[in-house]
C-alpha cells in the first residue's frame, strides 16, 4: 500500500467516524458503542482533519500532533460555549463536524503531488 493510498484510507475512516458520531448524537441513540465513538471522534477527527493537509513526518509525531490538536480544539469549543453562556454540546459537535468533514472529503478526493511528501 502506498503512502498516498494509506493517507486516503485514513481520511476515509475518519470521515466514517465523523458520520457515525453525528448520527449517534443527533438521533440520541442509546447504542452501547456511542460513548466509544464519541471519545474516538473528539480524540481523532478535528485535529487530524487539519493536520492531514500538512503531510508531516515522522508518522508518530504527526499522529501525536493530530491527537493533540483534536483534543485542544474540542476543549476550546466546549470552553468557549461555557464562557459565552451558550452551552449546547450538540451544537458544538456539529461545528466540529462542519469544520472537519470538508477537510476530510478534500483529503479523500484530492491527490497530493507524487514525491512532495517523500
Amino acid at each position: 500500500m502506498t503512502q498516498h493510498t494509506s493517507r486516503r484510507g485514513g481520511a476515509a475512516a475518519l470521515l466514517i467516524l465523523t458520520a457515525a458520531a453525528a448520527f449517534l448524537t443527533l438521533s440520541n441513540s442509546s447504542s452501547p458503542v456511542r460513548p466509544a465513538v464519541m471519545v474516538a471522534f473528539f480524540c481523532l477527527v478535528p485535529g487530524n482533519a487539519l493536520v492531514g493537509f500538512l503531510d508531516l513526518r515522522p508518522p508518530s509525531a504527526a499522529l501525536a500532533l493530530g491527537l493533540g490538536v483534536s483534543l485542544a480544539l474540542s476543549t476550546l469549543c466546549a470552553q468557549v460555549m461555557v464562557w459565552c453562556g451558550v452551552w449546547n454540546p450538540t451544537a458544538g459537535l456539529i461545528v466540529l463536524v462542519l469544520v472537519a468533514a470538508p477537510c476530510l472529503v478534500l483529503q479523500v478526493l484530492i491527490s497530493p503531488r507524487q514525491g512532495k511528501f517523500e
Binding site: 449517534l24 464519541m38 471519545v39 483534543l71 469549543c77 470552553q79 460555549m81 453562556g85
Partner: peptide, 30 residues
C-alpha cells in the same frame, strides 16, 4: 448548567478539561 463555580473550588478556575469532559458526557448520552 453550562457554567462554572470558581468560588466553590480552585480547579474551576482552570476548567478546560472539565468542559471537554462535559461535552463528551453529553454527546455520548451518559
Amino acid at each position: 448548567h453550562g457554567s462554572l463555580l470558581p468560588r466553590l473550588d480552585a480547579r474551576f478556575s482552570w476548567p478546560g478539561s472539565f468542559s471537554l469532559g462535559a461535552m463528551i458526557m453529553r454527546t455520548a448520552g451518559l
